[in-house]
Amino acid sequence: MHMADALVTPMVGCTMLIAAAGVTANSVNKIRNEEDIQNKIPLMGVVGAFVFAAQMVNFSIPGTGSSGHIAGGILLAAILGPEAGFLSLVSILIVQCLFFGDGGLLALGCNIINMGFFSCFIGYKLIYKNVISKNYSKKRIMVASILGSVIGLQCGAFSVVLETLTSGVTKLPFTTFLIFMQSIHLAIGIVEGIVTGLLLNFLYQNRPDILEKAAITKSYNITKKKVISIILASALVIGGGISLLASSHPDGLEWSILKTSGSEELTANDYIHEKIVEVQNKTAFLLDYGFNVDNLSVTEEIIGKSIAGIIGIVITIGIIVLITHLSIRGKKLYVVNDNVNEIEEKFKDK
């Protein structure tokens, strides 16, 4: 569901970027107050890396000629909490946009809201959390995962349609585009929900304490360190290997555009769009998840995509860890200031 720049005007793109920045700032403030955030950093890094790798794997939607990939918001929020999950997804989208050219730079705010906000704060907080509010069980986790994923993607898909409508993309008539977007992302959401439920049930079976606020009712089958190692190893295998088997069919958004307008991609040739594309082409040194070198053999292209996936995993972990450490650093500064103010108040009383 990564939107391209041609789908939005500078006004819409900037407005959504401001909205995304606001949600990001609020999330930073929230995780700053979490007592266990320091211990959560390794988990944030590897789960974020896993979602980055999983998003490289497009699966075919039978009978449609379309494909989809998981957004990962419900998975991240269920493990890390909605705010930390959202920040991890923001990091993933930034890495994809700047270094791989996946999603437009002007449309980055749209993609953050569409894929991150609706999954982490609507699909998770309003749906997933309420379904499992009474108690955790494998069945409840699966149902909550499917419902949360479907609702999150449906909201995100509807938001894409509104953003293109507001931008005046006349080649995408509202009703027709809406029908295709909602229907195809319903199918994608069901698949993502099942995958998410299976992964979360694995964690519930082995380390229930890793799930956000899950009741600890049994002994752990494996150590937390081993869980982190398994997630990281899985990310490397998916990003460096399984991603090579990804479907070549257009994703849900591209398919919907094709069905609506007759073309998979729309173009915008005004000055602002052209300059933004120039900037993104300079930062995207692994454009389309490969090395931008001419005359590569098939084997070299495969190796290049595999290496690109692994590089993306490493960069994603680095960005997530950096953002989290900066948030903690801010927390420490606030603590110091609070202590100083408290001491000053005591002296004043004396």
Results as ranks from 00 to 15, higher is better:
F285P: 00
K275M: 15
R140V: 06
I190D: 01
G123L: 01
L43A: 09
I112S: 08
A6K: 04
P208H: 12
I94Y: 03
K275D: 12
A77P: 00
I151K: 04
I257M: 11
I94L: 13
I317G: 02
S91D: 01
L105V: 11
K138C: 10
I132S: 03
I112E: 05
A21H: 05
G103W: 02
E301H: 08
A144F: 10
M1K: 04
I132W: 02
A268R: 13
K218E: 11
V95E: 00
N295C: 12
Q96D: 07
I41G: 03
S327Y: 03
I228T: 07
L178F: 06
N341G: 14
T267Q: 14
V51E: 01
M3W: 09
E301A: 08
N339I: 13
V277S: 11
M44A: 12
S137M: 05
V321A: 13
N206M: 09
E254P: 00
T267K: 15
T260Q: 10
V95D: 01
V47G: 00
I194L: 09
N29W: 09
M16I: 10
H249G: 01
S88D: 04
V28A: 06
F174I: 08
G81F: 02
T267R: 14
V8C: 03
K259R: 14
G73C: 10
I210Q: 03
K218I: 10
K282Q: 12
L126R: 11
A235I: 02
N39I: 09
L253P: 00
G239Q: 00
S137Q: 07
P250S: 13
S27V: 10
M181T: 05
D349V: 14
N281K: 15
G304V: 08
R329F: 05
T164N: 06
L93I: 13
I151Q: 02
P82R: 05
H2C: 04
Q182F: 05
V227M: 10
I303W: 03
A308G: 07
I41Y: 02
K346N: 05
A284V: 11
V169A: 07
L326Q: 12
T9D: 01
I310S: 01
I311A: 07
Q96M: 13
I74E: 00
A284T: 07
L198M: 14
V51M: 04
G72K: 10
L198R: 10
T283Q: 09
S27L: 06
G168W: 05
K213F: 08
K350D: 10
I94Q: 02
A215E: 14
I313C: 02
I272Y: 06
E342K: 15
S248E: 05
I276T: 13
D270T: 15
Q205T: 13
Q205G: 10
F118Y: 06
S159H: 13
N130R: 15
I257V: 13
K129Q: 14
I61Y: 04
Y220V: 11
